[in-house]
Amino acid sequence: MRERFWERLTLEELTDEEWEALCDGCGRCCLVKIEEEDTGDIATLNVACKLLDIDSCRCSDYPSRFSQVPECTKLSLDNVELFRWLPETCGYRRMAEGRGLARWHPLRSGDPERVHRKGISVRSFAVSERDVDEEDYEDHIIAVLPIEY
Protein backbone atom coordinates (compact mmCIF):
# COMPACT_ATOMS: atom_id res chain seq x y z
CA MET A 1 0.00 0.00 0.00
CA ARG A 2 1.11 3.53 -0.64
CA GLU A 3 2.31 5.55 2.32
CA ARG A 4 -0.48 7.46 4.11
CA PHE A 5 -2.74 6.92 1.08
CA TRP A 6 -5.85 7.86 3.09
CA GLU A 7 -4.56 11.42 3.46
CA ARG A 8 -3.37 11.94 -0.10
CA LEU A 9 -5.75 10.10 -2.40
CA THR A 10 -9.43 10.18 -3.23
CA LEU A 11 -11.54 7.06 -2.86
CA GLU A 12 -11.51 6.69 -6.64
CA GLU A 13 -7.70 6.53 -6.67
CA LEU A 14 -7.39 3.69 -4.14
CA THR A 15 -6.27 0.19 -5.02
CA ASP A 16 -8.43 -2.72 -3.87
CA GLU A 17 -6.00 -3.38 -1.01
CA GLU A 18 -6.12 0.26 0.10
CA TRP A 19 -9.92 0.26 -0.10
CA GLU A 20 -10.10 -2.82 2.11
CA ALA A 21 -7.68 -1.22 4.59
CA LEU A 22 -10.21 1.56 5.24
CA CYS A 23 -12.21 -0.95 7.26
CA ASP A 24 -11.57 -0.14 10.92
CA GLY A 25 -12.59 -3.60 12.13
CA CYS A 26 -15.50 -2.43 14.28
CA GLY A 27 -18.01 -4.98 12.92
CA ARG A 28 -20.91 -2.51 13.09
CA CYS A 29 -21.74 -2.94 9.41
CA CYS A 30 -22.33 -6.63 10.16
CA LEU A 31 -25.08 -5.95 12.67
CA VAL A 32 -28.51 -7.07 11.51
CA LYS A 33 -30.78 -4.26 10.34
CA ILE A 34 -34.50 -4.45 9.82
CA GLU A 35 -36.82 -2.01 8.16
CA GLU A 36 -39.76 -0.89 10.26
CA GLU A 37 -42.83 -1.70 8.16
CA ASP A 38 -44.90 1.28 9.32
CA THR A 39 -42.28 4.02 9.00
CA GLY A 40 -39.54 2.71 6.73
CA ASP A 41 -37.02 3.51 9.48
CA ILE A 42 -34.03 1.21 9.76
CA ALA A 43 -33.55 -0.48 13.12
CA THR A 44 -30.10 -1.76 14.04
CA LEU A 45 -29.87 -4.75 16.35
CA ASN A 46 -27.08 -5.94 18.60
CA VAL A 47 -27.38 -9.17 16.61
CA ALA A 48 -24.43 -9.81 14.31
CA CYS A 49 -24.35 -11.69 11.02
CA LYS A 50 -23.74 -15.39 11.47
CA LEU A 51 -20.38 -15.01 9.72
CA LEU A 52 -19.03 -12.32 12.02
CA ASP A 53 -16.40 -13.54 14.45
CA ILE A 54 -17.44 -11.30 17.34
CA ASP A 55 -14.08 -11.53 19.10
CA SER A 56 -12.05 -10.33 16.11
CA CYS A 57 -14.94 -8.33 14.56
CA ARG A 58 -14.00 -9.76 11.17
CA CYS A 59 -15.93 -11.94 8.76
CA SER A 60 -15.15 -15.61 9.28
CA ASP A 61 -15.59 -16.34 5.56
CA TYR A 62 -14.95 -13.06 3.78
CA PRO A 63 -14.27 -14.54 0.31
CA SER A 64 -17.60 -16.46 0.29
CA ARG A 65 -19.74 -14.01 2.26
CA PHE A 66 -22.09 -13.14 -0.59
CA SER A 67 -22.95 -16.75 -1.36
CA GLN A 68 -23.54 -17.53 2.31
CA VAL A 69 -25.30 -14.27 3.18
CA PRO A 70 -27.03 -12.92 0.05
CA GLU A 71 -28.15 -9.74 1.87
CA CYS A 72 -24.53 -8.82 2.68
CA THR A 73 -23.73 -5.41 1.20
CA LYS A 74 -20.52 -4.89 -0.74
CA LEU A 75 -19.25 -1.42 0.01
CA SER A 76 -17.93 0.20 -3.14
CA LEU A 77 -17.78 3.50 -4.98
CA ASP A 78 -20.92 2.39 -6.83
CA ASN A 79 -22.99 2.58 -3.64
CA VAL A 80 -21.13 5.28 -1.69
CA GLU A 81 -24.34 7.31 -1.45
CA LEU A 82 -25.77 4.53 0.70
CA PHE A 83 -22.97 4.82 3.25
CA ARG A 84 -25.13 6.99 5.50
CA TRP A 85 -26.49 3.81 7.13
CA LEU A 86 -22.97 3.04 8.30
CA PRO A 87 -22.00 4.35 11.74
CA GLU A 88 -20.52 7.85 11.77
CA THR A 89 -17.27 6.32 13.03
CA CYS A 90 -16.86 4.06 9.97
CA GLY A 91 -13.69 4.67 7.96
CA TYR A 92 -15.53 4.27 4.65
CA ARG A 93 -18.23 6.74 5.64
CA ARG A 94 -15.76 9.23 7.12
CA MET A 95 -13.66 9.16 3.94
CA ALA A 96 -16.72 9.45 1.68
CA GLU A 97 -17.84 12.49 3.69
CA GLY A 98 -14.38 14.08 3.53
CA ARG A 99 -13.77 13.78 7.30
CA GLY A 100 -10.67 11.58 7.14
CA LEU A 101 -9.93 8.66 9.42
CA ALA A 102 -10.35 8.88 13.19
CA ARG A 103 -7.20 8.93 15.34
CA TRP A 104 -7.99 5.47 16.68
CA HIS A 105 -8.29 3.92 13.20
CA PRO A 106 -5.71 1.14 12.73
CA LEU A 107 -4.12 2.93 9.77
CA ARG A 108 -3.48 6.04 11.85
CA SER A 109 -2.81 4.49 15.25
CA GLY A 110 -0.95 1.39 14.04
CA ASP A 111 -2.96 -0.56 16.62
CA PRO A 112 -5.86 -2.75 15.39
CA GLU A 113 -6.95 -3.35 19.02
CA ARG A 114 -7.55 0.33 19.71
CA VAL A 115 -11.00 0.24 18.05
CA HIS A 116 -11.99 -2.35 20.65
CA ARG A 117 -10.43 -0.58 23.64
CA LYS A 118 -12.23 2.64 22.65
CA GLY A 119 -15.55 0.76 22.75
CA ILE A 120 -16.29 1.42 19.09
CA SER A 121 -16.42 -2.19 17.99
CA VAL A 122 -19.25 -4.65 18.58
CA ARG A 123 -16.96 -6.97 20.55
CA SER A 124 -18.42 -6.01 23.91
CA PHE A 125 -22.13 -6.14 23.08
CA ALA A 126 -22.98 -8.16 19.97
CA VAL A 127 -24.53 -11.61 19.90
CA SER A 128 -24.52 -13.91 16.90
CA GLU A 129 -27.69 -14.35 14.90
CA ARG A 130 -27.07 -18.07 15.36
CA ASP A 131 -28.01 -17.55 19.03
CA VAL A 132 -31.14 -15.41 18.60
CA ASP A 133 -34.52 -16.47 17.27
CA GLU A 134 -35.81 -14.12 14.60
CA GLU A 135 -39.08 -13.64 16.50
CA ASP A 136 -37.01 -12.11 19.33
CA TYR A 137 -35.28 -9.53 17.12
CA GLU A 138 -37.38 -6.64 18.46
CA ASP A 139 -35.85 -7.26 21.89
CA HIS A 140 -32.40 -6.59 20.40
CA ILE A 141 -32.96 -3.17 18.77
CA ILE A 142 -30.21 -0.77 19.81
CA ALA A 143 -30.82 2.12 17.40
CA VAL A 144 -33.35 3.37 14.86
CA LEU A 145 -32.29 5.50 11.93
CA PRO A 146 -35.13 7.49 10.38
CA ILE A 147 -35.53 6.91 6.65
CA GLU A 148 -35.19 10.67 5.99
CA TYR A 149 -31.89 11.71 7.42
Rank of each mutant, 00 (worst) to 15 (best):
M1T: 02
R2H: 03
R4E: 12
W6H: 06
E7C: 03
E7I: 02
E7Y: 04
R8Y: 09
R8M: 12
R8S: 11
L9P: 00
L9T: 03
L14E: 11
T15Y: 04
D16G: 01
D16M: 07
E17N: 01
E18V: 07
W19N: 02
E20H: 08
A21H: 01
A21N: 05
C23T: 06
C23K: 08
G25I: 11
C29I: 07
L31T: 06
L31W: 04
V32F: 05
K33G: 02
I34C: 08
I34Y: 05
E35M: 14
E35G: 07
E35I: 14
E36H: 12
E37T: 10
D38Q: 13
D38L: 13
T39W: 03
D41Y: 03
I42V: 15
I42A: 07
A43G: 03
A43S: 13
T44K: 11
L45H: 07
L45M: 10
L45S: 09
N46P: 01
V47S: 06
V47W: 04
V47Q: 10
A48W: 00
A48E: 05
C49K: 06
K50Y: 00
L51P: 00
D53G: 03
I54F: 04
S56P: 00
S56Q: 11
R58L: 13
C59E: 11
D61P: 00
D61A: 12
Y62I: 08
Y62P: 02
P63D: 10
P63H: 05
P63E: 09
S64Q: 14
S64P: 00
S67Q: 14
Q68D: 03
E71H: 01
C72N: 04
T73W: 14
K74C: 01
D78F: 07
N79S: 08
N79W: 09
V80C: 04
V80R: 14
E81G: 07
E81I: 05
L82S: 15
F83E: 12
F83I: 08
F83K: 04
R84D: 14
R84L: 01
L86I: 02
P87R: 02
T89H: 00
C90I: 01
G91S: 05
Y92W: 12
R93L: 10
M95W: 02
M95E: 03
A96F: 08
E97F: 03
R99W: 11
R103I: 05
W104P: 01
H105W: 10
H105S: 09
P106I: 13
L107Y: 09
G110S: 13
D111C: 09
D111L: 11
P112H: 12
P112V: 10
R114Y: 07
R114W: 06
K118Q: 14
S121C: 06
V122K: 07
V122Q: 04
S124I: 11
S124G: 12
S124H: 15
F125Q: 13
V127A: 03
V127N: 05
S128H: 06
E129N: 04
D131I: 01
D131L: 13
D133L: 15
E134H: 08
Y137V: 14
Y137P: 09
Y137N: 13
Y137H: 14
Y137L: 15
D139Q: 13
I141T: 10
I141P: 05
I142P: 00
L145Y: 06
L145E: 14
I147P: 00
E148F: 14
